[in-house]
Design a protein around this nucleic acid. Structure first.
Lengths: 226, 226
DNA sequence: ACCTGAACACCGTTCAAGT
DNA sequence: ACCTGAACACCGTTCAAGT
């Protein structure tokens, strides 16, 4: 009943810690999340955080999983291919809103850990497509690999983009840089530099999804569309 | 002419710094490379290293590029599909020999930077396959996204594997963990857990490459095999 | 059981000073 | 031009002490 700040009144909990971590990551980037800033934000000591969370890696994993959970929750009905595209776009948008997510997903991938939520969500659609059970694992892995790899590549987007984006300037710069590469070493990259200008990341991302889906159809569904 | 240690006799150079960084990463992992250990190894001060290299990020990028250069150098002749597979295996083996490479590639990806060597090498094969020029960029990006995503996933391998690997134990453990997941939340992952036991990462990696190649063929080469 | 906050053992990076 | 190495401003994590 004594007047206090609202912040101090809420009890410390794992959820509240993860929530605060996500806010800090969103607001000030990966460098903005330290035990110092988190401690300050939650008005506690470092030890209090370590009581609820093993270490920073676990905290980052929890933050990633939390954001992913809400991003993948919108599981619209429809044919499997459309649902795969929906997951892909969910991922794309989540990274746009939380640029640090790309790095985190990449780091988890490079440790051999695919976020289970993504694997499960995609896997169900692979099954629904009619891929034979013996190829479920391989097929799902391939699709997830593409999704996470491509999602990572689109992270720059999210970082360089303000509300209405100066994305075009960025693409111009990359394009120009590519055009100045050594013709002897990078002929292909130079040839493709012009294509880069004004392309739509979202479209390209989906085009890649469709490419992998077409491959799955060709290799595992010879009878026709599932 | 005065007797000295061999190490001290060589002049410090960017190349020698990068070489030492790669050695440290190989020997003691990502945590093993610090400016302290590097300084000790090269018998200099920190400032000397900063004279040749802007910062740690640049050093890691240079180490990545160096290892990649030798890994992609074995550019065997043959039909484009085989050469794509060769690049894929080159990447796979490089990560096996340098586990830190997976993390580094993933980090670069999540910053929107595809290592130019990989993009160029794959792009040439995409062109050779007969993909129409308007789709070169998108197609190459998709293939590279898969390669780097999947390569990342296979990093655990390299880390947990001794000379003859206790890989099977590791797969057993993951498989068992998956089988204990909540059936309501992870039915697919549970169903696929058994498939995991005893599977071959290398084979799976290549199967994914073939999946994407099949997709490229289906979408962009309707006339037949390039 | 949960929280405090000072202390510890590190980091990457800088910079005045040397040669 | 290149190198030295102490100093700076940070980290993540621990832990004795409190409630």
């Amino acid at each position: 009943m004594t007047p206090r700040t609202r912040r101090r009144a809420e009890a410390l909990s794992r959820d509240r810690i993860v929530e605060a971590a996500v806010e800090l990551l969103d607001t000030s980037g990966e460098a903005g999340l330290t035990f110092r800033t988190l401690t300050e934000r939650l008005a506690t000591g470092a030890g209090a955080i370590y009581w609820h969370v093993a270490n920073k890696d676990e905290l980052l994993a929890a933050a990633t999983d939390g954001v992913l959970a809400t991003a993948l929750a919108a599981d619209a009905p429809g044919p499997p291919r459309d649902r795969v595209r929906a997951v892909a776009l969910g991922l794309f948008d989540a990274i746009e809103g939380h640029p640090w997510l790309a790095t985190q997903l990449a780091l988890q991938l490079s440790r051999g850990t695919v976020p289970p939520r993504i694997f499960e969500t995609i896997g169900r659609q692979v099954r629904a497509l009619g891929v034979p059970q013996g190829h479920w694992f391989t097929t799902t892995s391939a699709l997830v690999s593409y999704l996470l790899g491509a999602a990572g590549q689109n992270a720059t987007n999210a970082r360089s983009a303000g509300p209405h984006t100066n994305r075009d300037e960025f693409l111009d710069a990359v394009s120009s840089a590519w055009e100045e590469l050594d013709p002897a070493e990078y002929p292909f990259t130079r040839a493709v530099a012009a294509e880069l200008r004004g392309h739509d990341d979202r479209e390209q991302f989906l085009a890649g999804v469709d490419l992998v889906l077409a491959g799955i159809t060709a290799v595992h569904l010879p009878a026709g569309p599932g």
